[in-house]
Amino acid sequence: MPNELKSDWTLDEIAEIYDQPLLELVFRAQVVHRENHDPLRVQKCTLLSIKTGGCPEDCSYCPQAARYQTSVESEKLLPMPTVMAKAREAKANGSTRFCMGAAWRNVKDGPQFDQVIEMVKGVNELGMEVCCTLGMLKPEQAERLKEAGLYAYNHNIDTSEDYYGEIIGTRTFGDRIDTLKNVRKAGITMCTGGIIGMGETREDHLSFLQRLSSFNPHPESVPINALVPVEGTPLENQEMIDPLLLVRVIATARILMPKSVVRLSAGRLQMSREAQMLCFLAGANSIFAGDKLLTTANPGESSDDTMFRLLGIQAMENRAGAPAEEDAISVNV
């Protein structure tokens, strides 16, 4: 099974990997994983909503969209002391990456963005990888974030380009790619993945994985989420996916993108400890810690600590490290 860094995977090649018997697929993914990562080290990350609710977008999965009647209330941007206290708490609990999310369609220059810049500087000074997810981003805004010390920018492609319009109508798949280009051009590492279980097909999974692996270099961070249906959203009645399907997607992602950090993200609270273990075997080497992911419930620190202890996994202690300079400036996306 090829495991070289490759950005021109064909759909047929990806299908050949994806459609293997699951035990064989997981074994092959674990071999690739061990060749590129320590299989007993998992990065703990913390994700904080610094500006919750009131988003004008219509993402069908998101309880923060203003147009949906959910339990999420719109809140103002958190003050700097609150954010820094959360970041210090996250670091004390073993997280080496701190991500701040704002429910914005796009970044707007002004006082609020200025405040985010100061937050980035503050978290960076703690020695953590600092990540933001703020919506669409212009080149000059990406440059400001880079100068402030931003390590990574999250902007998920969510699903395949063909299925994207079924999930989001207020911006295009191309808009997502444009923001990712701006991130790469600024020399910020790219964090982009998607959500499994929104009614998409096998073919959508193949296309989604092909687009992610076509970035050159590959995304440094690939979060794979399982949809958590939320009452009040268009996907509220969607059934939770079979965790083994999530394992299949993660294993394929690991083989296609050997050096990327694959993040087991939303949906863990609904998964058994054994299902999560299979995801680690399949190549996932990061989780989001804490009892909440933005607005979605997540296993708490004590639950994860127990799981790590039982599996013999240790949390990564240091920053993962920036990509090589030539990779950071490559913009073939």
Results as ranks from 00 to 15, higher is better:
Pro111Tyr: 07
Val123Phe: 07
Arg67His: 00
Thr133Asn: 05
Gln69Asn: 15
Phe208Trp: 11
Asn156Ser: 08
Gly122Val: 05
Lys76Val: 01
Thr170Phe: 05
Asn124Cys: 14
Ile195Ala: 00
Val72Glu: 11
Thr192Phe: 05
Asp114Pro: 08
Tyr151Pro: 03
Val123Cys: 11
Leu77Glu: 00
Val130Ile: 15
Val130Gln: 12
Met100Cys: 06
Phe208Thr: 02
Glu143Phe: 00
Glu161Lys: 12
Met119Leu: 10
Arg88Val: 12
Leu206Ala: 02
Val183Arg: 04
Leu77His: 05
Thr82Lys: 15
Met136Lys: 05
Arg184Leu: 07
Ala102Phe: 13
Leu77Arg: 08
Asp158Ala: 05
Gly101Trp: 11
Thr179Ala: 01
Lys108Ser: 07
Thr133Arg: 09
Arg184Trp: 05
Lys108Val: 12
Lys91Trp: 10
Cys191Thr: 13
Val107Pro: 06
Ala148Trp: 06
Asp178Thr: 15
Thr159Gly: 03
Gly174Thr: 12
Lys146Cys: 10
Arg184Tyr: 01
Cys191Gln: 09
Ala148Thr: 10
Leu206Lys: 02
Lys108Arg: 15
Thr201His: 10
Phe208Gly: 01
Ala85Asn: 14
Leu137Ser: 04
Asp114Gly: 14
Cys99Leu: 13
Glu75Thr: 02
Thr192Ile: 01
Ile157Ser: 11
His205Arg: 15
Tyr163Asp: 00
Phe113Pro: 09
Asp204Trp: 08
Cys99Pro: 09
Asp109His: 06
Gly101Gln: 14
Arg176Ile: 01
Ile168Pro: 06
Ala85Thr: 12
Met100Ala: 06
Gln112Met: 14
Gly149Met: 02
Lys86Gly: 13
Glu140Asn: 01
Gly94Leu: 14
Leu137Val: 14
Gly122Tyr: 01
Gly197Trp: 13
Ala152Cys: 10
Asp158Tyr: 09
Tyr153Asp: 08
Arg176Gly: 09
Thr96Tyr: 09
Glu166Ile: 00
Asp204Asn: 15
Thr189His: 06
Ala85Tyr: 04
Cys132Arg: 13
Ser207Leu: 15
Glu75Ala: 12
Pro79Gln: 08
Thr170Met: 03
Lys91His: 12
Lys185Leu: 03
Gln115Glu: 09
Ile167Glu: 02
Gln115Val: 05
Glu161Ala: 11
Lys76Thr: 06
Gly194Pro: 00
Ile195Gln: 02
Asn93Asp: 12
Glu200Ala: 08
Cys99Glu: 11
Pro79Ser: 10
Leu206Gly: 02
Thr170Asn: 07
Gly193Ile: 07
Ala186Pro: 06
Ile196Asp: 04
Phe113Gln: 07
Gly149Ile: 01
Ala102Ile: 13
Met136Thr: 04
Ala66Asn: 04
Glu166Asp: 14
Arg105Gln: 15
Glu143Ser: 06
